[in-house]
């Protein structure tokens, strides 16, 4: 099909707008982080990396990142395990309440996170649990594990159940089938689910706000500092956070392609 001149122009403008709205703000945060001045002004008069050095040295930053990382890593690991078995139940086995389970799993995604966070906080209080970063893990899981399950379930739906039956028919026990057939075939889905889980937890603000108690995660801290006590440490940590997420995505892509190459490699 030949696209006309005007179509091309519209497409170009559309593309430009996408870039402007998605990436330009991020770039401006990047600029803010390398400004020497304490307050953000444009154009930036003097550049400096001093806020990056400060971030490296700061114990508060270290504590915040550790908290965020602890939450995100634990949420990721639990989500991956729950997602694997949940997806098998979701897509593979026929059982009485399967349809109900499939719908139930989707529900938390539609909840506004602030409402979910508030509800969980009230619930923690009522059963006498003091909110810390550990309760935030539970809150994150309520919202993230279903998403991870869906990602793995899509993968599970796309492969032929007769593969598992064939393996079983040739003498493989249930655990061997799981190890040799199901797990390798679901692995790309499990890795993507893990990536999503990590990123969603790492960047989550509303759930953390309600459920971390005295502890603070990176997004919470960024918000608090924006409200009072701004310094270029805020955009600096913002950029560091984005950079580490980006790095993680690259690692996952590498992991999946490495996984594929292992599969392709012969014996």
């Amino acid at each position: 099909m030949n696209s006309s001149k005007s179509t091309q122009i519209i497409l170009f403008i559309y593309g430009l707008l996408v870039i402007v709205f998605l990436y330009l703000p991020l770039i401006s945060v990047g600029f803010a982080s390398i400004s020497k001045a304490r307050y953000l002004t444009f154009p930036i008069k003097r550049y400096s990396t001093k806020w990056y050095m400060k971030a490296m040295e700061s114990e508060t930053v270290y504590a915040i990142i550790t908290t965020s990382l602890k939450v995100a890593v634990i949420v990721t690991v639990i989500s991956m395990i729950v997602a694997f078995f949940g997806a098998l139940a979701f897509a593979r086995y026929n059982w009485r309440y399967r349809g109900f389970f499939q719908k139930l799993i989707l529900l938390p995604i539609f909840f506004p996170q602030t409402v979910l966070g508030l509800a969980l906080l009230m619930w923690f209080n009522s059963i006498g649990i003091i909110p810390t970063w550990k309760t935030a893990i539970v809150a994150h899981l309520v919202w993230i594990a279903p998403i991870a399950t869906l990602i793995v379930a899509i993968r599970a739906y796309s492969f032929d159940p007769s593969l598992e039956e064939a393996a079983r028919d040739m003498g493989a026990s249930t655990t061997t089938v799981l190890k040799e057939i199901t797990l390798p075939l679901l692995m790309p889905g499990i890795i993507s689910a893990g990536l999503f889980a990590f990123l969603l937890s790492w960047g989550n603000f509303p759930l953390s706000l309600f459920t971390t108690g005295a502890d603070s995660t990176l997004p919470e801290w960024l918000y608090a500092k924006m409200v009072s006590g701004y310094s270029p440490l805020v955009p600096t940590l913002g950029i560091l956070s984005v950079a580490s997420s980006f790095l993680l995505v690259l690692v996952c892509i590498a992991l999946i392609s490495f996984y594929r190459s292992i599969q392709n490699k012969i014996n």
Binding site: D160, S162, L163, A166, R168, P184, L185
Partner: peptide
């Protein structure tokens, strides 16, 4: 099935795509 000395060729063939 896994303990029976019989084997089936499936309609979909069920060849494992992640293996050579």
């Amino acid at each position: 099935a896994n303990l029976r000395p019989t084997c089936m060729v499936f309609q979909s063939l069920a060849l494992f795509p992640h293996m050579s």
